[in-house]
Design a protein around this nucleic acid. Structure first.
Lengths: 353, 353
DNA sequence: TTGAAAGCGCTAACAC
DNA sequence: GTGTTAGCGCTTTCAA
């Protein structure tokens, strides 16, 4: 009749607290705390009694209470885009494993295909008072970045670049150069570029720019009409797709450099559904080195990013920033990419003059 | 000289608290709390002053403090296996989006290729006092499950089954039946099964068993030697792989049902590297309906799971359990799978007698 | 080696 | 409509 009120979320008897342990073992909660954390000096006898009490009670420290007094969560937040891009998922998994091995818990926030969720997700991480944030995806929104900066929360870009924060990313220029040089060496002269509106914005621009510059060094150009994807509003529209439009032209490119494996693979699908053969009619190079590119049936030539190193270096940077504070100099690292040649690239069928 | 001590993790001036907001706006913190949460009754004038103070201070509520007093985190934990299995990643993303739209934050814990991490990950979630746990992967460890049960923490299995918890999963039997019926209809009589040691254990057994039973209904058998993968210790060993061994036999199967798309695709790779053609020499059916199966170049015939429904039903079950407490009856749902026919299946080359 | 006490930042009664 | 008060479960001086 006069039961405890059924507070939503309260389940039966309340969980044991440090006070319960203290009472059962006949010591103060300060001592229990010392035993749990292995700090201070506790006699062997006391320690055993306390541990006994912990075991019989099934006591487990409450992270929120600890966080409150320690002003530190031991949680790091991750902002990541779309898992449809397999490389994102792979990177998240590695970062999580790295964090976990360093006694950190990870709060993963995906923005999916909605970069506009980014602000809300960041807000969540800030409310949770994460000790640091790893950006695997960043829209490039300056307002957001300056908010992060004024919050003085440790932030690292992992496979994601911003001038004002610690970063580790693949050397985009070198990666694109690997792709372009490979195609040029095969004899391609008319090379297009495929971007992805979902890719992190700085990277998108850097890679596109790199492509143009590297082509320039070979005496080649990247005319506007050979750039596909990105902010092209005609893409999902009616009528011919941009890909179909481009490849029905007389001066269609013989090769495409794609900004990531995800769109590269989608492009191959579309080209082949149009009756074009890869690599006979068109060569395609991806970027990421995701597992799916390596399937024999896919066989995508791609520029591989060192995923494990990105994850562990990224975490190093973040943890050092957490310990060092915001006034240490910004540290940025570029990692070396590697070309993986598979069967999506070949010499052009009809050599251009 | 006498600066504030550089406590690890403390960055410059402390963040504003509800007290700072109260002081600046000249009201009590209870009123501030009411404004923030939209509870109680606050005059329009006061509300504005408080909101003004919040804005100028850049105040943001502290989740840990709120958690401590409310005894509720609004966080749900996810335990998931390996993201190399693309379906896992997809499911996580959907669950996270669903949770987020219901004002819950998600704590994702991956166990990767190490099911033995499961216990530690669960421990983390329990210390964080998550309001509930969604198991997208469960080793089947009875000790672990009984611990979860005695903890009385709300748990739901999503695409993951256990008799003692709320669950939503695809109808494994129906799914396997779809696959087997399809192969039998094509004329296959000697059909093998490929399992995956990383798949959630109950599901692994159920699907294998289903395969045997459905074959039985067609008057066919599933002899032990036609079952590949799983706990087969010879797999990574030297010499011929089990796949190579099986398919060099005179009585090799003409078709394989795989327990998920991930291993199905790996199998196709291996078969083709052995010089066998899919589907000419061997038909392969997957299970999951992951995006990668749908790539034109992969073209895997597969049994699709309704991923979105799994995610949203799973979250419904979990939230209802959180609100309803542990004494409500267990609720379990099976969702209908659907066969997606692609080009990895075809009639057997040489009809068996 | 151990304990007492003072909060961490917030919510929820309850008083005014 | 607003303020006062008493914790939530823990860590951390500081005394004993």
């Amino acid at each position: 009749l006069s039961e405890a009120p059924s507070i939503s979320g309260s389940r039966g008897p309340r969980r044991p607290t440090i006070n319960d342990v203290a009472a059962l073992s006949g010591v103060s909660k300060a001592t229990v705390s010392n035993v749990i954390r292995g700090t201070g000096s506790v006699s062997e006898r006391t320690r055993e009694r306390v541990q006994q009490a912990i075991a019989t009670l099934g006591y487990r420290p409450n992270a929120a209470a600890r966080t409150l007094v320690r002003r530190r969560t031991n949680v790091i937040g991750l902002i990541v885009g779309d898992f449809a891009n397999a490389f994102n998922a792979e990177l998240v998994e590695r970062v999580e494993q790295e964090a976990s091995s360093r006694e950190y818990t990870t709060l993963v926030c995906t923005t999916g295909k909605h970069p506009e969720f980014e602000a809300a997700r960041l807000e969540t991480l800030l409310e949770q008072r994460v000790d640091g944030i790893a950006l695997l995806q960043f829209s490039g929104d300056r307002t957001l970045m300056s908010k992060l900066l004024t919050e003085r929360v440790p932030v690292v870009g992992v496979s994601c670049w911003d001038d004002y924060i610690d970063c580790v990313a693949v050397d985009d220029y070198a990666g694109i150069a690997l792709a372009v040089d490979h195609l040029v060496a095969l004899g391609h002269r008319r090379i297009g570029y495929l971007t992805d509106e979902l890719i992190e914005s700085t990277t998108r621009l850097v890679r596109l720019d790199a492509c143009e510059r590297v082509l320039g060094m070979h005496g080649l150009e990247l005319p506007r009409e050979l750039v596909l994807g990105g902010d092209d509003p005609t893409r999902p529209g009616p009528g011919r797709s941009p890909v179909e439009g481009l490849f029905s032209r007389a001066d269609a490119p013989t090769a495409i450099v794609a900004t990531n494996d995800n769109v590269a693979i989608a492009l191959i699908d579309e080209l082949e559904s149009l009756g074009l053969s890869v690599p006979d009619d068109v060569s395609v190079v991806g970027f990421d080195g995701s597992a799916v590119a390596g399937l024999a049936r896919v066989g995508l030539t791609t520029v591989a990013q060192p995923a494990q190193e990105l994850a562990s270096d990224g975490l190093d940077l973040l943890l050092q920033r957490i310990d060092g504070g915001p006034d240490e100099a910004i540290r940025q690292r570029r990692l070396e990419p590697a070309l993986i040649e598979r069967r999506s690239t070949a010499p052009p069928k009809i050599p251009t003059k």
